[in-house]
């Protein structure tokens, strides 16, 4: 009796899912598009003053102008260079520390406690110190990005290495793998999925750190473009800058997903 009711209950559900799923994707665009239209309407009718928020059309026009006169491209290049080098420094530090503390007992004993303590600090709160240490040039911005990247990479790499299935390590030992082979073929590959999670978090934090870092006395880059625009009440430029930030974040996230699919192709899907 119960099984038949379950069947009856389940059937209409499964029958309707297939067509809805096809419809869902375009349907999900309805409300975002409506919001933009509403925004445009509010701007056009003067309900929303351009001093508070420029209209979508103005934003699009401004984007075109900023691209055409090269301002956006230049700012973009400066910002992405900051993230790149900050990420490089932080990534190297995080991975190096994670490897040492993941692979050696002494490394873990000595390194893990201080890193675990430091990670509880919100790294964006370090700006005042970074300004005192590095001044207001490029260095504090790089340092902020690097700090934001190093911790998630360290934590996830370290955790990934620690989660290695001891059964696999045992098997490798009996089967005659050298210590080096055990690390390269057993321990490190098993840490990869967790490390990729860390990489995605790290990239997210990198952009966040850049945005915050660029509020500090920047004379170039997207943050400068936005701050400068604020002085002249150019909300259109501010929105363009924000959109670029968002697109950059999305792009790097997509790149990591791509990397995941490639590197983790052994996983059953």
């Amino acid at each position: 009796m119960t099984s038949s009711t379950a069947e009856v209950a389940a059937r209409p559900k499964s029958a309707t899912t297939a067509p809805t799923r096809k419809l869902t994707l375009p349907l999900r665009w309805i409300s975002p598009v409506a919001l933009v239209l509403l925004w445009q309407l509010a701007s056009s009718t003067g309900v929303l003053s351009p001093d508070k928020l420029a209209s979508p059309l103005t934003v699009a026009e401004t984007a075109g102008e900023l691209i055409a006169d090269g301002q956006l491209g230049e700012a973009f290049a400066v910002s992405i260079t900051r993230v790149f080098f900050g990420f490089l420094i932080g990534g190297f530090t995080g991975v190096a520390l994670g490897l040492v503390s993941g692979l050696s007992r002494w490394g873990e004993t000595l390194l893990d406690p201080p890193v675990q303590m430091l990670r509880t600090l919100p790294h964006l709160g370090l700006i005042p110190l970074f300004i005192l240490w590095f001044g207001i040039g490029e260095e504090p911005k790089l340092a902020l990005v690097a700090a934001g990247v190093a911790f998630p990479l360290y934590l996830n790499l370290h955790a990934g290495i620690r989660q290695t299935d001891p059964g696999l390590v045992e098997a490798a030992r009996v089967l005659g793998y050298s210590r080096f082979e055990r690390v390269v073929h057993v321990v490190l590959p098993s840490a990869v999925p967790q490390t990729l999670v860390g990489l995605r978090i790290a990239l997210g934090t990198a952009w966040l750190s850049l945005i915050v870092g660029e509020q500090v006395n920047a004379d170039a880059g997207l943050g400068f473009l936005i701050n400068n625009a604020r002085e002249f009440l150019r909300t259109d430029v501010v929105v363009v800058g924000l959109v670029v930030y968002a697109l950059l974040g999305l792009t790097t996230d997509a790149l990591v997903r791509l990397l995941e699919r490639k590197v983790l192709r052994w996983q059953k899907r």
């Binding site: 299935d165 696999l168 098997a171 073929h185 590959p189 098993s190």
Partner: peptide
């Protein structure tokens, strides 16, 4: 020389089958 097979196969999921067999053989 000792070799072993366990209750769980304990293959390295990230290495192809032939590599699982050949690894460590040198």
């Amino acid at each position: 020389k000792v070799s072993i097979a366990f209750q769980q196969p304990r293959l390295l999921p990230w290495r192809k089958v032939w590599r699982n067999i050949a690894l460590g053989l040198h």
